[in-house]
């Protein structure tokens, strides 16, 4: 009956519980921050451009993660359907991550570049116009809502607090970068933009060049998912864990 002392003293019980859980937490969580293997060292990963980030915020706002995962697991069936398994590095600038836990719809970790912008727009406006068996709700309103430019820099500053390495230059040019990515040359210096955000896709994603809508942002985000790492340049053995 040595546990009687815990059963009869609620403060001691609380301290005991705290101690036990802390040991579990410290052993499991702390090393993930200090081990070098946690995040793979691969080339190409960069923070999201302002337009992609806005699209990501819409993705979260609309709850896309409820039906779509962003996590290709190292299994044969997933590799044959979606491509190379996801790396921790590929979501290192995600706060919060969008791995998801449920696939009512397909995984989206490597959807970037798989379909055309036109398809994404048609599909978001009316999913059944292109995929008759789809049960996804329509998001036609995104094409009508103009994207808010004013809070772009604030979102980046917030992410910088939690460790996303946005430079002062990137934050200063946030609004301009939104215009450039959504309009191309008409918005500003495309080359300087691409230096800030290599591999970013540029253009009017929703086919209407006059304004940048939430549809532009979401499609820009979808079209870059899983495209940053060039796996032909990665030695697979360096990824083994």
């Amino acid at each position: 009956m040595k546990h009687e002392i815990f059963e009869k003293n609620v403060i001691l019980l609380a301290i005991g519980i705290l101690l036990t859980i802390s040991i579990g937490g410290l052993v499991q969580i702390v090393p993930l921050y200090t081990m070098e293997q946690t995040i793979e060292k691969v080339d190409g990963i960069r923070p999201y451009s302002p337009l992609e980030l806005a699209g990501r915020n819409i993705y979260i706002r609309e709850g896309c993660y409820n039906c779509h995962s962003q996590m290709v697991r190292p299994f044969r069936d997933e590799a044959e359907r979606y491509g190379h398994y996801s790396l921790a590095a590929e979501s290192m600038y995600d706060h919060p991550f969008q791995w998801g836990s449920k696939r009512t719809g397909p995984d989206l970790a490597r959807v970037g570049g798989k379909y055309s912008n036109d398809w994404h727009v048609a599909h978001l406006i009316d999913p059944r116009s292109v995929v008759p068996e789809s049960i996804m709700p329509p998001y036609a309103f995104l094409a009508k809502r103009e994207l808010s430019f004013d809070d772009a820099a604030d979102h980046m500053k917030t992410l910088r607090i939690v460790g996303v390495p946005y430079s002062d230059e990137q934050i200063a040019t946030a609004k301009e970068d939104l215009r450039i990515q959504g309009m191309g040359e008409a918005g500003g210096d495309v080359e300087a933009f691409l230096a800030r955000y290599p591999k970013a896709k540029i253009g009017s994603f929703d086919g209407d060049a006059k304004k940048t809508t939430e549809m532009d942002a979401l499609v820009a985000y979808l079209q870059m998912l899983g495209t940053l790492v060039d796996f032909t340049n990665v030695d697979p053995e360096t990824l083994y864990r």
Binding site: T34, E36, Y240, R241
Partner: peptide, 17 residues
């Protein structure tokens, strides 16, 4: 886990390998 590495186990299992 330790702070810099983890025990690999005698059979060297890796899910990715």
């Amino acid at each position: 886990p330790s702070l810099s590495d983890y025990t690999k186990g005698v059979i060297g299992y890796s899910s990715r390998a």
